[in-house]
Every structure is written in C-alpha cells, then in structure tokens.
Simulated assay, not measured.
Amino acid sequence: MVGRQGGFPTTEWTAVVKAACTGDTQVRRQALDGLCRDYWMPLYAFARRMGHDQHDAQDLTQGFFAYLLEKDLLTSANRELGTLRTFLLKTFQRHIGDVLDRERALKRGGGREFISLNLNLQEVETLLIEDGAGAAGHSPEALYDQAWAHAMLRAALLHLHDLEAMAGRGRQFEILEGCLNPDAADSRSAQEAGALLQMSEEAVRQTVSRLRKKFRQCLRDRIAATLQDPDDARIDEELHALKAGLRGRGTPLAGG
C-alpha cells in the first residue's frame, strides 16, 4: 500500500475549471497546487521513462503546471477529454514537444516560481528501476498509469485515515491499515492486532472488513472526482485502468 503524503486532493472537474476561470490569483494557485499533489509524480515518471534525466524531468513537470494556467487550458479541459488522467497526459506530451522545439526555452521553469511540494521522488525512481529490470520495460504511458494508480490509492487511503481519525478511531486505523490489502507482506494477524487493540480476533476481522468496504468507497469517490460526468460505468472503467496500472500494463488512452 502506498505511503502518506499531503492531504486529500480536490481536483474535481468543476472546481478546477471554475478556479481556472477566476481572476483570483490565490484561488488559481490553490487549484494548481491540488493538481500538483495528485499528478506531479505520474507526469514526472512519464518524462523519466521518455529518457529525460532527473533534472530535466523535474523542469518539464514543474513548468507544465504553470503552463496550464498561463494558457488557460483548463477552461476547455472538460470539453476536450473526459478524465483528468488522459487530459493531463496528452497535454503534457504536447508541452514536452513544444519545449524541445524551443530548445529548452522553458528550462528551469522559465523563471517561474516553483511550486513547493513534499514529494518523494525516490518512489518514482524505484518504479523506474523495478520496471527496467524487465526484458524491455514498459512504455512511458504505462509507467504514467502505474504512478497515477499509486497516487489514487494514496489519496483514498489518506481520506479514509482522516475520516477514521475524525471519528476517534485514528489509532485503530493505523494499527489495521496494513490489513486493508490482504496480499500485503506486512499485514498484521488478527490475533496480533486484537492484542494491541484489546479486541477479539472476530471483532478485528469485522472491523477490517468494514474498513475495506469504506476504502473501496473512498477510492470510487476519488476516481469520480477526476471525471467530467461520473457515473457507475465510467467509474468502473477508470477503476479497471487503475488495476491495469498497478499490474504495470497501462491502458489505452483513446476515449479517456
């Protein structure tokens, strides 16, 4: 399961587009920060797999988010593509091409202020190393989907943590968090968790079952927030993309 970083991002289509249309610099900046928390690392992973070194990949990714607002691209995003995942990747691909055509005219963000984020780039570098251990490695698009899937899981897990903490069950959640993934190597046994929480094994199993159900709903909510017109079918489609991304296969981008 992915680790904790930042807060639950608010990147709903309506919120992002509304922020992009406003003249309020602070509101626009908040929208940009929200997108960065969710998509900086997947886009950085894509740039790295394209062959850019760490510094150039950071430059390209950093400059891209400022470019989004400068060019007012988000105001038409919901009309162009149906998911943030596909819109941002396609736009990033065009941005990289433009930057290369201008011979790094936007290098180091073109003098723009960098967005300060607490990012663990080692997570992406580890994905690159593990991916490169295969016969040929995956495509940049597949690696982007893999990093995106991890970002979605992280956001859903953070949100569930916040919900449980607000309900006074923060310590319980922290002890049982590893049990949410039945395949996790560090999952605590029901007996060990029960001893720590002074609960019976059966009560622990029921609590874990409840948390897994809530986690699935948090993940669906998180996915819905990235869709223009979310419905069950479209959410299921993106969840399929997420599962494929975790397996490292990626998914076709056509049609969002």
Rank of each mutant, 00 (worst) to 15 (best):
R222F: 04
A19H: 00
E123D: 14
D59I: 00
A195H: 12
L246P: 02
L128H: 05
W40S: 04
H138K: 13
L158H: 03
L246Y: 06
A57W: 03
S76Y: 04
K214D: 14
V208R: 02
N120I: 09
C21F: 05
R94A: 15
W13V: 01
L88D: 00
L119M: 13
L106V: 07
N120M: 06
I175Q: 03
E237W: 07
R234I: 06
L242D: 01
R216F: 05
E238D: 10
H138F: 06
R188Y: 06
A31K: 03
A241W: 09
L157K: 05
T22P: 07
L197D: 03
S209G: 15
A151G: 10
F114H: 12
D183M: 10
D72T: 07
T207C: 12
R171D: 15
G168F: 05
G7H: 11
D98H: 11
G245W: 01
H159G: 02
A57L: 09
A149S: 14
Q62R: 11
A165F: 08
L127N: 00
E12R: 14
S139L: 12
H161R: 15
G97Q: 12
S116F: 08
A165H: 13
L74Y: 02
E103A: 07
A19M: 04
Q191V: 13
E80D: 13
T75H: 03
C179Y: 01
H161L: 12
L68Q: 04
D38C: 11
L68P: 03
S200L: 07
G7Y: 06
D33C: 06
G132D: 13
C36I: 04
D72P: 02
T10A: 11
D38P: 01
I96D: 00
T10M: 10
